[in-house]
């Protein structure tokens, strides 16, 4: 099967029903995308497919062929952080940071769709991402910093 992840082509041998998340983590060794629930409700596994955020834990890898997949590992370009990553690094919202990759990719997708979201729009867009450490107030701040970048 052919996959295109972070602008790189991969040829892999997996069953098309395998969740994209498992394929990324186990076959491509891209472990930045995290498992949090496996049922599409926590957002830890968020990746972008053609720029749209999806829950990779409930996305069969077979459905993602010939599409552009972006994971957290693909945001940094030539050693330069993506502006959303930079905003999160600077604002330092995290505790354990296990939610970080999903939060950052969801923010990237949000700002692509709506470059100047209101606080309410941010909350709506991020409702599917859980931070169990409860850093939501700081995350909101980080997203607002990202908006300005």
């Amino acid at each position: 099967m052919q996959l295109r992840v972070n602008n790189q082509d991969y040829e892999i041998d997996v069953n098309g029903n395998t969740p994209l998340l498992n394929t990324l983590r186990e076959h491509l060794k891209l472990t930045g995308s995290k498992y949090g629930c496996g049922e599409g409700v926590c957002g830890a596994c968020t990746v972008l497919i053609n720029g749209v955020p999806v829950r990779s834990c409930i996305t069969p890898v077979g459905s993602t062929q010939n599409k552009e997949i972006t994971t957290i590992e693909g945001l940094e370009q030539e050693g330069k952080l993506h502006s959303v990553q930079a905003a999160f690094l600077e604002t330092d919202p995290f505790q354990c940071a296990y939610c970080a990759s999903g939060m950052i990719l969801s923010t990237v997708a949000l700002l692509k769709r709506n470059p100047t979201p209101s606080r309410q729009e941010i909350v709506e867009a991020m409702q599917g991402n859980i931070c169990r450490c409860g850093t939501y107030p700081a995350l909101l701040e980080a997203i607002q910093v990202a908006v300005k970048k």
């Binding site: 891209l30 930045g32 995308s33 957290i72 590992e73 330092d92």
Partner: peptide, 8 residues
């Protein structure tokens, strides 16, 4: 901090 925002 950088390792956490890059997934490393």
């Amino acid at each position: 901090g950088r390792d956490f925002v890059t997934g490393k």
